[in-house]
C-alpha cells in the first residue's frame, strides 16, 4: 500500500516572498520533502484553489481585505497552520506603516510623489481595500506553530519540517532562532 502524502499549502500575504525564497533554499532537500508531502495551493505550484490540507504555511501579515479572506480560508482548510517569518508573526516591516495614518501613506505615494502626472489614489474595485493597519496573523486566527526569522533560514525550516513530520516536539537549536 502506498502511504498517502501529507498535503501542504503555502501563501504569501503581506510579505516579500523572502520566506518562500528561503523555502526554495532547501535545495536538494526539496526532493526529500517531495517524498513526504504534496503541495496544494502554493506559489510553487501556482494552484489558485485551496483544497483540504494537513499543513498550511503562511508568510506575511495582513494588510488588506483579501489577505484576511485568504487567511480565514487557510485556517478553515488546514489542520495545522504555521506563521512563517517576522511579518506573519509581528507584522514586520510592512507594519511600520502603522506609525502613520493610511491616508497619509497613500497621499505620500500617489499624490505627493515626484514626477506624477494626473496624480490620484488608485480606487479600481479589483484592488483589495487596505486595512488601516497591518497586523500579525495570530491576531485574526489561531496559529499552531511560529517560525521566526526574516526570513527563517532554510536550515531552520528544515529542522522544523522534519520534526513536525516525524511527530516530534519542535526544538530548534539556538543558532536557528532569530528575529531578523
Amino acid at each position: 500500500m502506498i502511504e498517502s502524502k501529507l498535503k501542504v499549502a503555502t501563501c504569501s500575504l503581506c510579505g516579500c516572498f523572502g520566506c518562500h525564497m528561503s523555502l526554495l533554499d532547501l535545495d536538494e532537500r526539496l526532493f526529500d520533502l517531495a517524498e513526504k508531502v504534496e503541495f496544494d495551493r502554493s506559489p510553487l505550484t501556482d494552484l489558485k484553489e485551496l483544497g483540504e490540507c494537513d499543513i498550511g504555511i503562511i508568510e506575511g501579515g495582513i494588510a488588506n481585505v483579501e489577505n484576511v479572506h485568504t487567511l480565514l480560508e487557510f485556517r478553515a482548510r488546514c489542520k495545522i497552520l504555521i506563521a512563517m517569518g517576522a511579518c506573519a508573526i509581528s507584522g514586520g516591516i510592512p507594519a511600520m506603516r502603522n506609525h502613520y495614518e493610511l491616508k497619509d501613506c497613500l497621499e505620500e505615494s500617489y499624490t505627493r510623489g515626484i514626477g506624477l502626472v494626473d496624480a490620484q489614489i488608485p480606487n479600481d474595485p479589483e484592488i483589495p481595500l487596505l486595512l488601516d493597519q497591518v497586523h500579525p496573523i495570530h491576531e485574526v486566527v489561531k496559529i499552531d506553530y511560529f517560525l521566526p526569522g526574516c526570513p527563517p533560514s532554510a536550515d531552520t525550516i528544515w529542522t522544523f519540517v522534519t520534526q513536525l513530520l516525524a511527530g516530534q516536539p519542535i526544538a530548534l537549536p539556538y543558532t536557528q532562532i532569530h528575529y531578523d
Binding site: A83, I89, A95, H99, P136, P148
Partner: peptide, 18 residues
C-alpha cells in the same frame, strides 16, 4: 534574553504605539 527564554512569537495583541 527573548531568545534565552524561548520566545518564538509575541503572542499578545500589538499596541503599535506612535
Amino acid at each position: 534574553v527573548a531568545y534565552y527564554v524561548g520566545m518564538l512569537a509575541p503572542h499578545y495583541t500589538h499596541f503599535y504605539p506612535r
